[in-house]
Design a protein around this nucleic acid. Structure first.
Length: 601
RNA sequence: GGGGACGUAGCUCAAUUGGUUAGAGCACCGGCCUGUCACGCCGGAGGUUGCGGGUUCGAGCCCCGUCGUCCUCGCCA
């Protein structure tokens, strides 16, 4: 008796194999049973092959008749063309559809109870498989081993493999070394909440799991490994989102003797390679470089989706005119605020009254107290405040906003940050409801955002905080203003954005211990505090640190982009839910009293 | 920590807005069928409407609480 092990996969057999005796291993995708004949569609990750079992072989026919969805079978038999009475019966939905296996051997490798939800692959005319109807995500996460059999999840995880492979190939060619850094490290107070691990051999002391390999990679630069990368797991104990997991993966890159442009070149080279080899798309270089201040003004976000225009227009000057008799906006301006607007082109016809009402909720979610809406009609503009505006201002606004009949103009007056946030959210919302882009198209708008401010004012703590992180170098020309005017200091920091997602971020680091000390001082950190927290880094910087800098790409988000999903859990084999729980394993879970005692808890 | 949506058969969803015995498709079980291919046809089984309380003659539907899931704001250097 021949081995049960496969000679081919379920996606590999073609007309050229006709006549061969083969063995396939796989899961029962679907079955169609007659009295005297059974069709089994056998599935593995390569595809589906139809198996026919005839009643003239009673032993195997009986076995096949028992088989159900998701049983694991080994089928041996002859490959034959699907042809009946001289007529071809090919199934064009399957790449293996010209042939089938006439079973001479059926072995049940494992049985399976009726699955809690259907995971069978559904063939389509274009020979692509789609999912059966999706069950609730929590149920699917609980039975992740079944969910992972779905064709779309398999495709997305294979895409992720391709992404990792391209990264390793590309960076190797560019001369980078892949190096590992510790998971058990030291807590650093800046930034996100740490996941902590108690030490058994040093009761009362704790490790922290890394939020990123940031400090280690800088030390590697000091050590002379001038081109480093790592596909690194990072952990942050913060609340989750559709695009955020507590543990996530970064492509961590660091280089010595570089400035911003060098980092851009390396990552642009990699980006082109990734999109070419993962999707067959050509990304034109160089990537656009946008200034932080400009994108905040035009798009109300530091990670704008550039697939559509819909730019925000500054109209503070118009509402500041002395003869404007509209006090609500004027009061905001008096208080130092701004008035900005969006033109939702053609929205009057495209949006229902309910849709238009919802815009106000969106603006409120962004922090605005209200939303000024002006409907541009053929003969007039409908808005409560419009009549309070002088004709010249009306004309100026219509011109600046390029207003045409059928347009809906949306105004927000507030503090600058609030105006940006609410109009930024409105812009995103409008693009979606007005269908300004096709979410299913292979349309990628990638850009750098740079010229970030070094510091932002933390209103709660009443101090300056690092916008990026405290090792980010200020622009050379701003070094003088470090103490006198921290708010105006710009950083050598940059983000990489794709379709509205922040997919990477990095900076040139401070390699001069004096500058590093000055920066800690601005952040309100004393010499002693800095020493106790980052002493090893400050030491290292003293021992001949080369100028260096780097970047980290959020690989989960890259995988989302490439796989065209908005759910990060789709590109992670074993993700956690929104409460950071693993519904399959039940983690986190209580531990034994004995375990706790050993750890001094 | 705040806001929102959802929770009805194994799964996906209905239930004329508080009114008879809570329905359908898929899945499951049984029967029929030799060219199906997400086979088809006939039949069957399957429900503490997440849980607890309340209002009412009467609750899947209304109210309160609670648990769970997702989205979102804060947060995420």
């Amino acid at each position: 008796m021949a081995s049960w092990q496969r000679t081919h996969t379920c996606g590999s057999l073609r007309e050229t194999h006709i006549g061969q005796t083969v063995t396939l291993n796989g899961w029962v995708n679907t079955f169609r049973a007659y009295n005297d004949q059974i069709f089994l569609d056998l599935r593995d990750r390569y595809g589906i092959t139809q198996v026919v079992v005839e009643a003239d072989q009673p032993e195997i026919f009986k076995l096949a008749a028992e088989a159900r969805s998701e049983w694991v079978l080994s089928i041996s038999g002859q490959v034959r063309e699907r042809i009946i009475d001289g007529k071809q019966k090919h199934n064009t939905k399957l790449s293996t559809g010209a042939i089938e296996i006439l079973a001479s051997e059926v072995r049940v490798l494992n049985r399976c109870p009726t699955p809690p939800f259907e995971v069978n692959w559904v063939p389509q005319e274009n020979q692509v498989f789609v999912d059966a109807e999706l069950a609730n995500e929590d149920l699917r996460l609980q039975y992740r081993f079944l969910d992972l059999r779905r064709p779309t999840l398999q495709r997305m995880l294979m895409m992720r493999h391709r992404l990792n492979k391209v990264i390793r190939d590309n960076l190797d060619v560019q001369g980078f070394l892949e190096m590992e850094t510790p998971l058990l490290g030291r807590s650093s107070p800046e930034g996100a909440r740490d996941y902590l691990v108690p030490s058994r051999v040093s009761i009362g002391s704790w490790y922290a799991l890394p939020q990123s390999p940031q400090l280690y990679k800088q030390i590697l630069m000091v050590a002379g490994y001038d081109k480093y990368f790592q596909i690194a797991r990072c952990l942050r104990d913060e609340d989750l989102r559709a695009d955020r997991q507590p543990e996530f993966t970064q492509l961590d890159v660091e280089m010595s003797f570089v400035e911003q442009d060098d980092i851009f070149r390396v990552i642009e080279n990699l980006t082109v390679d990734i999109f070419k080899r993962c999707l067959g798309i050509d990304i034109p270089l160089p990537l656009p470089r946008l200034k932080y201040a400009d994108v905040m003004l035009k798009y109300g976000s530091d990670k704008p989706d550039l697939r559509y225009g819909l730019e925000i227009v500054e109209v503070t000057d118009d509402f500041s005119q002395p003869d404007v008799a509209f006090t609500a906006f004027f009061e905001q301006i008096q208080a130092g605020g701004r008035v900005r607007a969006l033109n939702a082109k053609g929205a009057l016809a495209k949006l229902s009254n309910k849709d238009q009402k919802e815009l106000e909720d969106v603006a409120r979610r962004g922090g605005a107290k209200g939303l000024g809406q002006a409907k541009v009609r053929d003969d007039q503009v409908q808005a409560p405040f419009w009549k309070h505006l002088p004709a010249a201002v009306q004309e100026s606004l219509l011109k600046k906003l390029d207003a045409k009949p059928g347009d809906l103009l949306l105004f927000v007056a507030d503090k600058e940050g609030t105006v940006c946030q609410s109009l930024g959210m409105l812009r995103q919302h409008l693009a979606s409801v007005l269908k300004l882009y096709d979410p299913n198209a292979l349309d990628y708008k990638i850009a750098w955002v740079c010229d970030f401010p070094s510091f932002i004012w933390d209103d709660e703590e009443k101090r300056w905080a690092a916008n990026h992180h405290p090792f980010t170098a200020p622009m050379d020309e701003d070094l003088d203003k470090l103490e006198s005017d921290p708010g105006s200091v710009k950083a050598k920091a940059y983000d990489l954005i794709i379709n509205g997602y922040e997919c990477g971020g990095g900076s040139i680091r401070i390699h001069n211990p004096d500058v590093q000390s000055r920066l800690f001082k601005v952040l309100g950190m004393s010499e002693e505090q800095a020493k106790s927290r980052f002493g090893f880094l400050l030491d290292a910087l003293k021992f001949g640190a080369p100028p260096h800098g780097g970047i980290a790409l959020g690989l989960d988000r890259w995988a989302m982009m490439l796989a065209r999903t908005t759910n990060i859990r789709d590109v992670i084999a074993f993700p956690k839910n929104q409460k950071a729980r693993d519904l399959m394993t039940g983690a986190p879970a209580p531990v034994d009293a004995k375990q706790k005692k050993e750890l001094g808890l």
